[in-house]
Amino acid sequence: MNNRESLYIYYTVFRRRLFYPLISVLVALSICLSSALPSQAFDWVPLIFQGVQALQLSNMSDRQEVEIGKQINQQLLDSDVRLYRDANINRYVQQIGQRLVANSDRPNLPFTFQVVDDDKINAFATLGGFVYLNTGLIETAENEAELASVIAHEIGHIGGRHLVKQMRQKALDAGLLTAAGLDRNRAIQIGYQLARNLPGSRNHEFDADKRGLRTLTRSGYNQTAMVSFMQKLVKKGSVPTFLSTHPATGDRINIIKKAINTQPSNGNDGLDNSTYKTNIQALLRS
């Protein structure tokens, strides 16, 4: 018997020894899944798959988040979100935003700040560092620190990956998660719907306030601007969408005040009202 024949016989025997135990395991597994309690076996499998996919969403890379954010942004711009094109206003908002990003929880994320041509007092954020500020909100703020407080809050949502978590929960609720993963187009559509509907979450809003206040403080802005802006809007009697979700705005104000008292800061930037009006002069003229 030559070496080639010996190797062939060895391989055949080895394959058979491996094959039969494998078949036994598969048969035993099929019997377990199909016997006695078939309903329980059927219910556990999708739950396991959903748990795996939920973990994948929660561990989405920065690159994936930015790419999906870009596509959500394009859907928003293709729908009813119209950008305000004045270069000076956009440059000013970008400067404030990037100053805050440098002191945020995700300073390496490529944030994009966009001004929306809308008189409503509103702001929101999507995946991958995309932040939107209505012209109505910019006009309502009395100084740069107040505007910065809103931007810092939206950055806080991105820092906490709140929209990613909401997407995961919505996909689970709708039964869209499979072992193969959440379809990319569906993920984009869910993100778009969440951005437009601005659903509230008590824990997420508190967390964005906490993160936003920390970012505002690190950036040297006056801490009380976050409180003064919220109070101003409450006194108007018409709380904007981004503040109207639970928890109640009054509760948020009280918690922010306590946080300021426990972590005082000497930062006093952004309180010059006249300088702010000069910086947004193009918007006030339009």
Score class of each variant (00 low, 15 high):
Arg17Ser: 05
Arg17Ile: 03
Arg17Val: 04
Leu18Gln: 08
Leu18Thr: 07
Phe19Ile: 00
Tyr20Asp: 00
Pro21Glu: 07
Pro21Met: 04
Pro21Gly: 04
Leu22Val: 14
Leu22Met: 15
Leu22Phe: 15
Ile23Lys: 05
Ser24Met: 13
Ser24Phe: 14
Val25Ser: 00
Val25Gly: 00
Val25Ile: 12
Leu26Pro: 07
Leu26Gly: 11
Leu26Ser: 11
Leu26Ile: 14
Leu26Ala: 15
Val27Thr: 10
Val27Gln: 02
Val27Trp: 01
Val27Gly: 06
Ala28Pro: 05
Ala28Gly: 15
Leu29Met: 09
Leu29Tyr: 09
Leu29His: 07
Ser30Arg: 08
Ser30Glu: 11
Ile31Tyr: 04
Ile31Asn: 03
Cys32Glu: 05
Cys32Arg: 11
Cys32Phe: 15
Leu33Cys: 07
Leu33Trp: 05
Leu33Lys: 09
Leu33Asp: 03
Ser34Glu: 01
Ser34Asn: 06
Ser34Ile: 03
Ser35Tyr: 07
Ser35Arg: 05
Ser35Asp: 00
Ser35Met: 08
Ser35Pro: 01
Ser35Val: 06
Ala36Trp: 12
Ala36Met: 12
Leu37Asn: 15
Pro38Asp: 02
Pro38Gly: 00
Pro38Met: 03
Pro38Asn: 01
Ser39Arg: 11
Ser39Ile: 11
Ser39His: 14
Gln40Asp: 13
Gln40His: 12
Ala41Gln: 03
Ala41Val: 04
Asp43Ser: 13
Asp43Thr: 08
Asp43Ala: 13
Asp43Glu: 12
Val45Tyr: 04
Val45Cys: 00
Val45Ser: 01
Pro46Tyr: 02
Pro46Asn: 03
Leu47Ser: 12
Ile48Gln: 03
Ile48Ser: 04
Ile48Gly: 03
